[in-house]
Protein backbone atom coordinates (compact mmCIF):
# COMPACT_ATOMS: atom_id res chain seq x y z
CA UNK A 1 0.00 0.00 0.00
CA UNK A 2 2.62 2.49 1.12
CA UNK A 3 4.96 1.27 -1.59
CA UNK A 4 2.30 1.69 -4.25
CA UNK A 5 1.59 5.21 -3.06
CA UNK A 6 5.29 5.98 -3.12
CA UNK A 7 5.71 4.63 -6.63
CA UNK A 8 2.64 6.58 -7.72
CA UNK A 9 4.04 9.89 -6.50
CA UNK A 10 7.42 9.08 -8.03
CA UNK A 11 5.61 8.61 -11.32
CA UNK A 12 3.84 11.97 -10.83
CA UNK A 13 7.21 13.69 -10.41
CA UNK A 14 8.55 12.00 -13.54
CA UNK A 15 5.57 13.35 -15.46
CA UNK A 16 6.11 16.86 -14.00
CA UNK A 17 9.68 16.82 -15.21
CA UNK A 18 9.13 15.28 -18.63
CA UNK A 19 8.39 18.62 -20.40
CA UNK A 20 11.72 20.20 -19.34
CA UNK A 21 13.74 17.16 -20.35
CA UNK A 22 11.84 17.06 -23.65
CA UNK A 23 12.41 20.75 -24.41
CA UNK A 24 16.11 20.61 -23.56
CA UNK A 25 16.64 17.42 -25.58
CA UNK A 26 14.73 18.75 -28.61
CA UNK A 27 16.60 22.06 -28.76
CA UNK A 28 19.96 20.42 -28.17
CA UNK A 29 19.59 17.63 -30.73
CA UNK A 30 17.25 19.06 -33.37
CA UNK A 31 17.84 22.81 -33.33
CA UNK A 32 21.43 23.22 -32.25
CA UNK A 33 22.40 19.87 -33.75
CA UNK A 34 24.75 18.95 -30.93
CA UNK A 35 25.07 15.78 -28.87
CA UNK A 36 24.08 15.93 -25.21
CA UNK A 37 27.26 16.45 -23.16
CA UNK A 38 27.76 14.35 -20.02
CA UNK A 39 24.74 12.17 -20.56
CA UNK A 40 25.46 10.25 -17.34
CA UNK A 41 25.55 13.46 -15.30
CA UNK A 42 22.30 14.56 -16.88
CA UNK A 43 20.58 11.29 -16.02
CA UNK A 44 21.84 11.28 -12.41
CA UNK A 45 20.81 14.91 -12.01
CA UNK A 46 17.34 14.30 -13.42
CA UNK A 47 16.91 11.32 -11.12
CA UNK A 48 17.85 13.52 -8.16
CA UNK A 49 15.31 16.13 -9.23
CA UNK A 50 12.60 13.46 -9.48
CA UNK A 51 13.40 12.10 -6.01
CA UNK A 52 13.59 15.62 -4.59
CA UNK A 53 10.24 16.66 -6.01
CA UNK A 54 8.59 13.48 -4.69
CA UNK A 55 9.96 14.01 -1.17
CA UNK A 56 9.01 17.71 -1.25
CA UNK A 57 5.38 17.05 -2.20
CA UNK A 58 5.07 14.38 0.54
CA UNK A 59 6.63 16.73 3.10
CA UNK A 60 4.27 19.47 2.01
CA UNK A 61 1.24 17.37 2.87
CA UNK A 62 2.70 16.03 6.13
CA UNK A 63 4.42 19.14 7.46
CA UNK A 64 4.05 22.55 5.83
CA UNK A 65 0.30 22.56 5.14
CA UNK A 66 -0.76 21.14 8.56
CA UNK A 67 1.47 23.52 10.54
CA UNK A 68 0.34 26.57 8.58
CA UNK A 69 -3.31 25.76 9.08
CA UNK A 70 -2.92 24.68 12.71
CA UNK A 71 -1.22 27.97 13.58
CA UNK A 72 -3.94 29.93 11.75
CA UNK A 73 -6.62 28.18 13.83
CA UNK A 74 -4.65 28.73 17.04
CA UNK A 75 -4.25 32.44 16.34
CA UNK A 76 -7.95 32.73 15.55
CA UNK A 77 -8.82 30.97 18.82
CA UNK A 78 -6.41 33.12 20.82
CA UNK A 79 -8.14 36.17 19.35
CA UNK A 80 -5.17 38.54 19.66
CA UNK A 81 -4.95 40.65 16.53
CA UNK A 82 -1.60 42.17 17.50
CA UNK A 83 0.13 38.80 17.80
CA UNK A 84 -1.34 37.55 14.56
CA UNK A 85 -0.12 40.63 12.72
CA UNK A 86 3.28 40.35 14.39
CA UNK A 87 3.47 36.74 13.23
CA UNK A 88 2.50 37.72 9.67
CA UNK A 89 5.16 40.44 9.60
CA UNK A 90 7.85 38.18 11.04
CA UNK A 91 7.05 35.45 8.55
CA UNK A 92 7.20 37.85 5.59
CA UNK A 93 10.32 39.67 6.75
CA UNK A 94 12.18 36.61 8.05
CA UNK A 95 11.65 34.42 5.01
CA UNK A 96 12.50 37.17 2.53
CA UNK A 97 15.61 38.68 4.06
CA UNK A 98 17.53 35.39 3.74
CA UNK A 99 16.13 34.45 0.33
CA UNK A 100 19.08 33.58 -1.98
CA UNK A 101 17.28 34.80 -5.13
CA UNK A 102 16.75 38.19 -3.51
CA UNK A 103 20.40 38.45 -2.42
CA UNK A 104 21.43 37.77 -6.04
CA UNK A 105 19.02 40.37 -7.43
CA UNK A 106 20.15 42.98 -4.87
CA UNK A 107 23.76 42.51 -5.94
CA UNK A 108 22.87 42.93 -9.61
CA UNK A 109 20.84 46.02 -8.75
CA UNK A 110 23.87 47.52 -7.00
CA UNK A 111 25.95 46.89 -10.12
CA UNK A 112 23.31 48.64 -12.23
CA UNK A 113 23.18 51.58 -9.84
CA UNK A 114 26.96 51.92 -9.95
CA UNK A 115 26.93 51.79 -13.75
CA UNK A 116 24.17 54.40 -13.90
CA UNK A 117 26.18 56.61 -11.52
CA UNK A 118 23.41 56.63 -8.93
CA UNK A 119 25.98 55.58 -6.34
CA UNK A 120 29.76 55.61 -6.20
CA UNK A 121 31.38 52.68 -7.93
CA UNK A 122 33.16 51.26 -4.90
CA UNK A 123 32.87 47.91 -3.15
CA UNK A 124 31.53 49.50 0.03
CA UNK A 125 28.93 51.67 -1.70
CA UNK A 126 27.64 48.72 -3.69
CA UNK A 127 27.42 46.55 -0.59
CA UNK A 128 25.51 49.23 1.31
CA UNK A 129 23.14 49.68 -1.58
CA UNK A 130 22.51 45.91 -1.94
CA UNK A 131 21.90 45.46 1.79
CA UNK A 132 19.59 48.46 1.93
CA UNK A 133 17.62 47.07 -0.96
CA UNK A 134 17.38 43.64 0.66
CA UNK A 135 15.98 45.04 3.90
CA UNK A 136 13.60 47.28 1.94
CA UNK A 137 12.17 44.32 0.06
CA UNK A 138 11.94 42.19 3.22
CA UNK A 139 10.14 45.04 4.99
CA UNK A 140 7.71 45.36 2.09
CA UNK A 141 6.92 41.62 2.13
CA UNK A 142 6.32 41.75 5.89
CA UNK A 143 3.98 44.68 5.38
CA UNK A 144 2.26 42.87 2.50
CA UNK A 145 1.41 39.90 4.72
CA UNK A 146 0.10 42.24 7.44
CA UNK A 147 -2.22 43.94 4.93
CA UNK A 148 -3.18 40.57 3.43
CA UNK A 149 -4.05 39.07 6.83
CA UNK A 150 -6.09 42.18 7.77
CA UNK A 151 -7.94 41.81 4.49
CA UNK A 152 -8.85 38.19 5.28
CA UNK A 153 -10.04 39.14 8.77
CA UNK A 154 -12.12 42.09 7.60
CA UNK A 155 -13.31 40.42 4.39
CA UNK A 156 -12.22 43.29 2.11
CA UNK A 157 -12.54 42.35 -1.59
CA UNK A 158 -9.04 41.76 -2.94
CA UNK A 159 -9.44 43.53 -6.28
CA UNK A 160 -9.70 47.06 -4.82
CA UNK A 161 -6.47 46.62 -2.88
CA UNK A 162 -4.61 45.11 -5.83
CA UNK A 163 -5.88 47.74 -8.28
CA UNK A 164 -4.83 50.41 -5.77
CA UNK A 165 -1.42 48.75 -5.75
CA UNK A 166 -1.25 48.85 -9.54
CA UNK A 167 -1.98 52.56 -9.53
CA UNK A 168 0.81 52.94 -6.97
CA UNK A 169 3.21 51.04 -9.23
CA UNK A 170 2.28 53.18 -12.25
CA UNK A 171 2.78 56.44 -10.33
CA UNK A 172 6.11 55.25 -8.91
CA UNK A 173 7.24 54.19 -12.40
CA UNK A 174 6.79 57.76 -13.60
CA UNK A 175 8.93 59.08 -10.75
CA UNK A 176 11.63 56.41 -10.39
CA UNK A 177 15.04 56.55 -12.09
CA UNK A 178 14.91 54.60 -15.35
CA UNK A 179 17.70 52.21 -14.36
CA UNK A 180 15.81 50.78 -11.40
CA UNK A 181 12.48 50.01 -13.11
CA UNK A 182 13.45 46.61 -14.59
CA UNK A 183 14.85 45.37 -11.28
CA UNK A 184 11.87 46.70 -9.36
CA UNK A 185 9.41 44.89 -11.62
CA UNK A 186 11.39 41.66 -11.36
CA UNK A 187 11.76 41.87 -7.58
CA UNK A 188 8.04 41.20 -7.18
CA UNK A 189 8.41 37.76 -8.66
CA UNK A 190 11.56 36.55 -6.94
CA UNK A 191 10.69 37.21 -3.32
CA UNK A 192 8.33 34.32 -2.72
CA UNK A 193 10.32 31.14 -2.23
CA UNK A 194 9.37 27.51 -2.49
CA UNK A 195 8.92 27.09 1.27
CA UNK A 196 7.21 30.42 1.90
CA UNK A 197 4.48 29.88 -0.70
CA UNK A 198 2.93 26.70 0.77
CA UNK A 199 3.24 28.01 4.32
CA UNK A 200 1.64 31.36 3.54
CA UNK A 201 -1.09 29.73 1.43
CA UNK A 202 -1.94 27.36 4.28
CA UNK A 203 -2.00 30.29 6.72
CA UNK A 204 -4.42 32.25 4.53
CA UNK A 205 -6.70 29.31 3.87
CA UNK A 206 -6.62 28.32 7.56
CA UNK A 207 -7.53 31.84 8.68
CA UNK A 208 -10.36 32.12 6.17
CA UNK A 209 -11.81 28.77 7.21
CA UNK A 210 -11.56 29.52 10.95
CA UNK A 211 -13.51 32.78 10.66
CA UNK A 212 -17.22 32.58 10.13
CA UNK A 213 -18.50 34.18 6.94
CA UNK A 214 -15.19 33.85 5.06
CA UNK A 215 -14.79 31.57 2.10
CA UNK A 216 -11.39 29.82 1.97
CA UNK A 217 -11.26 30.08 -1.83
CA UNK A 218 -12.28 33.74 -2.29
CA UNK A 219 -10.75 35.07 0.94
CA UNK A 220 -8.02 32.57 1.80
CA UNK A 221 -5.90 33.10 -1.29
CA UNK A 222 -4.31 36.44 -2.12
CA UNK A 223 -1.46 36.73 0.40
CA UNK A 224 1.15 35.89 -2.26
CA UNK A 225 -0.38 38.50 -4.58
CA UNK A 226 0.31 41.23 -2.01
CA UNK A 227 3.80 39.88 -1.39
CA UNK A 228 4.59 40.18 -5.11
CA UNK A 229 3.18 43.68 -5.46
CA UNK A 230 4.62 45.69 -2.55
CA UNK A 231 8.30 44.96 -3.36
CA UNK A 232 7.85 46.69 -6.75
CA UNK A 233 6.72 49.89 -5.07
CA UNK A 234 9.29 49.75 -2.30
CA UNK A 235 12.22 49.10 -4.64
CA UNK A 236 11.21 52.06 -6.82
CA UNK A 237 10.76 54.13 -3.66
CA UNK A 238 14.27 53.10 -2.62
CA UNK A 239 15.53 54.21 -6.03
CA UNK A 240 13.80 57.59 -5.69
CA UNK A 241 15.09 58.30 -2.20
CA UNK A 242 18.72 57.38 -2.89
Amino acid sequence: MLLRQGLGSLFDSLRDLAPIVGVVAFFQLAVLGQPIPNLADLLIGTLMVVIGLTLFVQGLKLGLFPIGEAMAWDFARKGSLMWLLAFAFALGFGTTVAEPALIAVAEEAAAVAAEGELIEDTEAARKDYANGLRYTVALSVGLALVIGVLRILRGWPIQYLIIGGYIGVVVMTALAPREIIGIAYDSGGVTTSTITVPLVTALGVGLASSIEGRNPLTDGFGLIAFASLTPMMFVMGYGILL
Partner: peptide, 14 residues
Protein backbone atom coordinates in the same frame (compact mmCIF):
# COMPACT_ATOMS: atom_id res chain seq x y z
CA UNK B 1 15.73 16.63 1.88
CA UNK B 2 13.47 17.06 -1.13
CA UNK B 3 14.56 20.64 -1.81
CA UNK B 4 18.22 19.75 -1.37
CA UNK B 5 17.96 16.90 -3.88
CA UNK B 6 15.80 18.98 -6.21
CA UNK B 7 18.18 21.95 -6.37
CA UNK B 8 21.33 19.84 -6.53
CA UNK B 9 19.85 17.79 -9.37
CA UNK B 10 18.87 20.92 -11.28
CA UNK B 11 22.31 22.44 -10.86
CA UNK B 12 23.99 19.23 -11.91
CA UNK B 13 21.89 18.48 -14.97
CA UNK B 14 19.38 20.91 -16.31
Amino acid sequence: LGLAFFIEGLERAL
